[in-house]
């Protein structure tokens, strides 16, 4: 188990991700910042993992389904000791393993993603294997809200409930903005909680930027051992930089020049 202060960790990884995305001239900064606090709590307080033995059999499994937010995950892994922090500088570079979508060739990454709606089914298979073999590890999947448009997720949601996968926990990054517009204007998810409940999942909701709430929910908040769990984490896209928050623009825009400096200052002095 890695013990790290999630507040300090999230601050560091936001700064790393900002620099990585600037240097790469890439996008998805808003999606990255949206999950910085969730990942910091997961890796700092929850997951039973060991950077010295990334494949140890009883490790908890974590799959990032929204693979476009991978910069922040690479940064978290670096800060947790899976590889040196300076390797983050190769993000997007020729020959680098640090691709723009989650790459399992990177030390500590469980599964490659990129196209949405894939990881939950795979996680269900991993959780089912653990159930059959009476293993105690937990399997976590982080979904985006927009990704819940994908029908494949709902196939997996049916399956996990039917097979009573109480060792499977989904976290939804519910920032309510997708690629081109808001969730409400695109394909409305509400009543979101009721949908999960109707499918047979135990549901908790929290502020996805509050480390105490996240830790409490993920550590022992779920009580039902016979149903899969979902934590609907209410988040803000672009969280941490005022001019990036709650905008569609920063799904795509790359932070360059003055915008980079302004974002860095906000994060550094937060």
């Amino acid at each position: 188990m890695i013990q790290k202060d999630p507040v300090a960790l999230s601050k560091k990884v936001r700064l790393h991700a900002l620099a990585m995305i600037r240097d790469a001239k890439s996008s998805h900064i808003g999606s990255n910042f949206s999950i910085a606090d969730i990942l910091s709590v997961l890796y700092g307080k929850i997951l039973n993992i060991d950077p010295k033995q990334p494949k140890k059999e009883d490790r908890d499994r974590f799959l990032l389904s929204k693979g476009h937010a991978t910069a922040i995950l690479y940064a978290i892994l670096a800060e947790c000791g899976f590889f040196p922090v300076h390797e983050l500088k190769t993000f997007y570079q020729a020959g680098s393993l640090f691709l723009g979508h989650t790459n399992c060739k990177v030390y500590g990454i469980e599964f490659s993603t990129g196209s949405l709606g894939h990881a939950l089914s795979v996680a269900a298979g991993i959780a089912l294997a653990a159930q059959w073999r009476k293993k105690v590890f937990r399997t976590f999947v982080l979904l985006s809200d927009g990704e819940c448009d994908e029908g494949s997720n709902w196939e997996a949601i049916l399956f996990a409930a039917h097979h009573r996968l109480g060792n499977l926990t989904v976290i939804v990054d519910y920032n309510k903005i997708q690629s081109l517009d808001t969730i409400a204007n695109t394909l409305a998810l509400e009543p979101f909680r009721a949908k999960w409940e109707a499918f047979g999942w135990e549901v908790l909701e929290c502020d996805g930027h509050n480390p105490e709430q996240l830790e409490r929910c993920l550590k022992d908040g779920f009580k039902d051992k016979h149903h899969p769990h979902v934590l609907i984490a209410h988040t803000v896209k672009g969280k941490g930089v005022s001019f990036m928050e709650n905008t569609v623009l920063w799904h795509y825009r790359s932070p360059q020049g003055e915008e980079y400096e302004a974002a860095k200052d906000e994060l550094r002095y937060a």
Partner: peptide
């Protein structure tokens, strides 16, 4: 789709 993803997860576990 779920069948194939699920199969992958089981396979990754041996």
């Amino acid at each position: 789709q779920n069948m194939t993803g699920l199969a992958t997860g089981l396979a990754l576990e041996g």
